[in-house]
C-alpha cells in the first residue's frame, strides 16, 4: 500500500512565500504603470481643453495670460535641431571609433569612463558650463547657438553609447567577410557596418532628441527667454522653449489663475512631442527589425 505524501509544512510555507512575493511584485509594477498613466492622464485631461489651432500658432499675449505658445514650440524645435547638428556627427564618429578602431586597452577604458562620467553630470552643471564657456567666454550671449552647443554636449554621451552598442552587436563575421573580399577597413565600415547598425543608431538618435526637448536647466542661462514673442531670426537670437515656458508659467508671473490653463496646454504639447518621439523610435525599431528578417 502506497502512503499518500502530504507536502511538508516547509514546502507549503515556501510556496506561500513565493505567491505573496510575486503578488507584491505584480502590485508594485502595476502601481508604477499607474503613476505614469496618472501623470499622463492628468495632463491630457487638463490640457486637452486648452489646445486649439490658435494656441499652437499664436504668440503669448497679455503678460502670458492669454494667447498661444507658438514661439516656444519653434524655439524647442530650433534647439533640438541645433543640438542634433552639434552632437550627432561627433557622437557617431566617436561611437565608430570606440567600436571599430580603438584597440582594446586603456584608451577605450579611459574614453568609456569619461563618457560615462559625462552622462552622469547633472544638467544644471551643463548649464553653468555653457554659460561660462559659450555665453561669457566665447561671447555668444544668450542665444540659440549657445543653447544648442550646451544641449549638444549633454546629449553626446547618449549618442556615443547608442552608436557604439549598435555597432558592437554586429557579428565579426560581417567584418571579416568584407575584409576578406579585399575591402579596406573604411570601406567595410561605410558599406557594411554602418548600414547594418543604422536602424539602432537612428532610434537612439531620436530618443536623444526627446531628452533634449525636455531639458530646462541647461538652457536657463544659455538661451531661454522669459518672453520673446517674435520668432528667432538667427542663431544669435534668444528663443522661448517649451520646458522653460512651463517652468515660468507655473512658478512666477502676474496672474497664476489665468496662467494655469496655458501651463497645462504647454505641458501637454511637451508630452505629446515626447510621446511622438518615443512611438516613432519604437515604430522605426520594429520596422527595421521586420525588414531584417
Amino acid at each position: 500500500m502506497k502512503s499518500v505524501e502530504y507536502p511538508s509544512r516547509y514546502a507549503v510555507r515556501k510556496r506561500y512565500a513565493q505567491r505573496v512575493a510575486f503578488w507584491l511584485f505584480r502590485f508594485f509594477s502595476l502601481f508604477i504603470a499607474f503613476i505614469l498613466f496618472a501623470i499622463l492622464g492628468f495632463i491630457i485631461y487638463k490640457g486637452a481643453g486648452v489646445l486649439s489651432w490658435d494656441f499652437l500658432t499664436k504668440a503669448p499675449s497679455d503678460g502670458m495670460t492669454s494667447g498661444g505658445i507658438f514661439p516656444a514650440i519653434v524655439g524647442t524645435l530650433c534647439l533640438m535641431a541645433g543640438s542634433a547638428v552639434v552632437a550627432f556627427p561627433i557622437g557617431i564618429m566617436s561611437g565608430i571609433y570606440m567600436s571599430e578602431f580603438a584597440s582594446k586597452g586603456w584608451v577605450v577604458k579611459f574614453i568609456r569612463l569619461m563618457t560615462n562620467n559625462l552622462s552622469g553630470v547633472p544638467s544644471i552643471v551643463f548649464g553653468l558650463f555653457g554659460m561660462a564657456l559659450f555665453v561669457k567666454y566665447l561671447n555668444f550671449g544668450d542665444s540659440i547657438l549657445a543653447g544648442s552647443l550646451t544641449l549638444g554636449m549633454l546629449s553626446l554621451p547618449l549618442v556615443i553609447r547608442t552608436t557604439e552598442e549598435a555597432l558592437k552587436d554586429i557579428p565579426d563575421s560581417m567584418r571579416e567577410g568584407s575584409l576578406a573580399l579585399g575591402a579596406s577597413k573604411l570601406q567595410t565600415i561605410w558599406r557594411v557596418i554602418l548600414p547594418m547598425g543604422m536602424p539602432r543608431i537612428i532610434t537612439g538618435l531620436i530618443l536623444s532628441l526627446g531628452r533634449v526637448s525636455g531639458e530646462t536647466a541647461p538652457i536657463l542661462f544659455t538661451c531661454a527667454a522669459y518672453f520673446f514673442p517674435q520668432l528667432p531670426t538667427s542663431i544669435f537670437d534668444q528663443c522661448m522653449a517649451l520646458p522653460y515656458h512651463l517652468y515660468v508659467l507655473s512658478t512666477s508671473g502676474t496672474d497664476m489663475a489665468a496662467q494655469q490653463p496655458i501651463a497645462y496646454g504647454t505641458a501637454l504639447v511637451l508630452i505629446v512631442i515626447i510621446l511622438i518621439i518615443n512611438l516613432l523610435s519604437g515604430a522605426l525599431r520594429r520596422y527595421f527589425e521586420n525588414r531584417l528578417k
Binding site: 508604477i32 503613476i35 505614469l36 501623470i39 499622463l40 492628468f42 495632463i43 544638467s123 530618443l207 526627446g210 531628452r211 526637448s213 525636455g214 531639458e215 530646462t216 536647466a217 520646458p243 522653460y244 512651463l246 517652468y247 507655473s250 501651463a263 505641458a267 511637451l270 508630452i271 515626447i274 510621446l275 518621439i277 518615443n278
Partner: peptide
C-alpha cells in the same frame, strides 16, 4: 516613458 518625461513636467505635476 517614465524616463522620457521631462523633469519640468514632473515638477509641474
Amino acid at each position: 516613458l517614465l524616463n522620457g518625461i521631462p523633469s519640468v513636467v514632473y515638477g509641474f505635476f
